[in-house]
Nucleic acid binder design. Structure first.
Lengths: 226, 226
DNA sequence: CACCTTTGTGAACGCAACGTGAACGCACCC
DNA sequence: GGGTGCGTTCACGTTGCGTTCACAAAGGTG
């Protein structure tokens, strides 16, 4: 089996010990660049990311993985019980998580189940809403069958919005979740990207993105039935 | 959202309490036969099965679910830390598991992630009173099924009032709680917003907001039974 | 009924939030 | 070097809406 990508470098000793005892091959990686350098020929067998005090770097790595920059799947988090809040709105960034400190047998069971679960062929991941389809693997977007030519940031923004249809996000939230926590920049940047998205969606579908005055933006219509 | 199937009957009190507090609908089921009888028209929203001393019955229920006898998905296990062995070779019988005793926030996070992963939306945060429904995530309001087009301040004011039905608030209290503590402005501003809310609620529901002369305003019926 | 207080009503003002067009800076490529 | 694509920023116009005011209506009190 291909080695596991483990963050941070060095990982907690209990984790390293469990992986060694369990017979897993693994490599510690401090960040995305190092992970890219150390990527084995056959890709990674999965990733274990520890969410601790410096969670920014950890989440950035998760985003990079999910973005497709790194050929890694599945992704398991090790997270302190007092940081469970950070899982909110980040469902797309992990496949499973395990509380830290952990019972060795629980982590073993999770790893085993995770590999079992993802061992089956995974269909291309799609995000769909109305006539809009986003193919997360090919980075293509289609509206009513017509392909959309989106830039990178436009695609990421639309993806995030479409993954949470109906929900309203402030500009600050969008900046932190789409651009990244470490981003420092004007909030009006979001406006411009929203405008370009609306333009590319066409007059017919521009209303997919609604402005909620004094709050932020919302994708899609209301969500009363679920 | 459809109710959750919970085994055994009765479930552990901590589990019942967490589900109630989380706003989940659920029904306890002792076995497959009872689950089949109690199946709602729209099917189940998912299942939570506790693996304890009588684990045979629990696993039998899981097998029945996975066989397709019961329209249930996804399936989460609650399992004692000393029974982790039982997960071996049973990967196909569950989607996720949580160690028992559990931290409430962990179980909440697992439920949320599980529903997200399997395509079901999470239960939106709602404030309800009579025919009025406020969706706190989408910033939308509905009265008797008809959408209300509220401005930001109107929404915030109505939300605050509806979160404390029956209670009377002075204008000063409303200014400090809704507008913010540092707010300096005329108290009559509240009157105008109340007026516009009543207008938008329509003649039929305008009386949802009652004037308490020389005191302030009250949302909903008084607590004195009338 | 007379008088005062409190609340409802209509309309106007003014700011801040948002949309829009355009320019800048940067990385990349031919 | 020139050209292109793209993310970001700035300046400007517009408008939605929060606030305020003046007056009318309603309620309370002696």
């Amino acid at each position: 089996m291909e080695p596991l990508l483990v963050h941070p470098d060095p990982p907690p000793p209990e984790l390293a010990r469990l992986l060694d005892l369990g017979g897993y091959a693994w490599k510690p990686c401090a960040d995305e660049r190092q992970a890219l350098n150390d990527t084995p020929d056959d890709g990674w067998g999965g990733a274990i990311v520890v969410i601790n005090e410096q969670s920014d770097a950890a989440w950035a790595l998760c985003r990079a993985i999910r973005k497709g920059d790194l050929p890694v799947e599945p992704l398991l988090l090790l997270i302190g019980g007092n940081r469970l809040d950070e899982l909110d709105l980040r469902d797309e960034l992990y496949d499973d998580f395990c509380l830290d400190p952990f019972h060795p047998r629980e982590l073993e069971a999770r790893l085993r189940h995770l590999f079992w679960r993802t061992g089956f062929g995974t269909a291309p991941e799609l995000v769909e809403y109305g006539g809009l389809v986003l193919n997360l693997e090919t980075y293509q977007a289609v509206i009513d069958g017509d392909p959309l030519d989106l830039t990178y940031m436009e695609y990421e923004l639309l993806k995030f919005l479409a993954q949470h249809p109906g929900k309203v996000f402030t500009r600050e939230t969008l900046l932190s979740r789409v651009w990244g926590y470490e981003y420092y920049g004007g909030a009006r940047t979001v406006d411009v990207h929203i405008r370009r998205l609306r333009a590319k969606l066409g007059e017919e579908h521009a209303n997919l993105i609604a402005t909620v005055r004094s709050v932020g933006y919302r994708f899609g219509q209301s969500r009363w039935g679920g």
